[in-house]
């Protein structure tokens, strides 16, 4: 039974990783940059949910947090990232910039909400447990898995079936040629960046009741998030789904059978093993978004 329970735990944690990594990996595929402040939107989502949920309900909280974090992401992209991408080694410049943003955000969070970890309530309708034969499992955790599955399916459909999705793929494949054909790459890049930070905000709302909410959570999750993104192959959507689940499982079983930090150390070991044999990650292919 523990094996089944740990598998479900792994899937739940993996779902959070997948939501967070999706924005990071697509933005990397498009612009070749990594946003260190990605975790800030996740943290903001978690903190906002604590205040919003009792007042406006769960569904409205998710929608409001998505809108707000997407808007803030858009501001960061337009004011911060866009002026830098034309420079030499834009990746490095964006790293330094977003690192600064993340440090400030973490400190401000400490000032606003205090340094003590906060607890987030499970939404009323999703509280309690679900009995599946011999297994009793929290409904909310299953909801997180289902939510992520639906969202990622929609994202994959949007990627392959809509005009915008095809345009995004064309930019990832070759930005110059795509723009020569009339694609407004900067606008699409901004849009995708904002969608990614919005999804990170939603991930924060979902993760609140599962993981704890505290001012340095935007950094503490980065290591495992980077592992997921690298393992999947930077720029690969399918890759982060697979690696998110894999790392979620490794983490859950490591924590259950070894120790609290073993999960992350094992996840790191998996990353090393994969990097030695596949330097581009499991599904990474230069310049291709999948």
């Amino acid at each position: 039974m523990t094996v089944v329970l740990q598998t479900l735990n792994g899937l739940t944690i993996g779902a959070i990783y997948i939501l967070l990594a999706s924005g990071l990996t697509i933005v990397f595929g498009l612009q070749g940059i990594v946003n260190v402040a990605h975790g800030v939107f996740y943290m903001l989502g978690a903190y906002l949910a604590i205040g919003l949920y009792p007042r406006i309900g769960f569904a409205a909280t998710v929608a409001a947090v998505f809108a707000l974090t997407a808007l803030l992401g858009l501001v960061l992209e337009l004011a911060g990232v866009r002026p830098l991408v034309r420079r030499k080694r834009p990746g490095m410049q964006v790293l330094v910039l977003t690192l600064g943003v993340a440090i400030i955000a973490s400190e401000v969070t400490k000032l606003v909400w205090g340094p003590v970890p906060l607890l987030s309530d499970v939404p009323a309708g999703l509280a309690g447990t679900l009995t599946l034969g011999p297994i009793v499992y929290p409904t909310y955790w299953l909801f997180v898995i289902a939510f992520t599955a639906v969202l990622m399916t929609l994202l994959a459909l949007a990627f392959h079936r809509t005009t915008l999705g095809i345009l995004v793929q064309s930019i990832a494949l070759n930005s110059e040629i795509s723009q020569a054909m009339g694609t407004n790459a900067p606008r699409i890049n901004s849009l995708v960046f904002a969608l990614g930070t919005g999804v990170a905000g939603v991930a924060g709302v979902l993760a609140g009741p599962i993981l704890s909410v505290y001012p340095t959570m935007c950094f503490d999750l980065l290591m495992i998030l980077f592992v997921v993104v690298i393992l999947g192959g930077l720029g690969s959507l399918l890759g982060i789904v697979v690696s998110g689940i894999l790392i979620g499982l490794v983490n859950a079983f490591g924590v259950a059978y070894l120790s609290g930090t073993a999960g992350n150390i094992l996840a790191f070991a998996v990353m090393i093993a994969v990097l030695i044999f596949r330097p581009l990650g499991l599904f990474g292919r230069a310049g291709i978004l999948k």
Partner: peptide
């Protein structure tokens, strides 16, 4: 790994 991925790999190594 690529230039930006180095950031991720070195960070993950240090955290581990």
């Amino acid at each position: 790994v690529g230039a930006v991925a180095i950031f991720l790999v070195t960070f993950a190594c240090a955290e581990a």
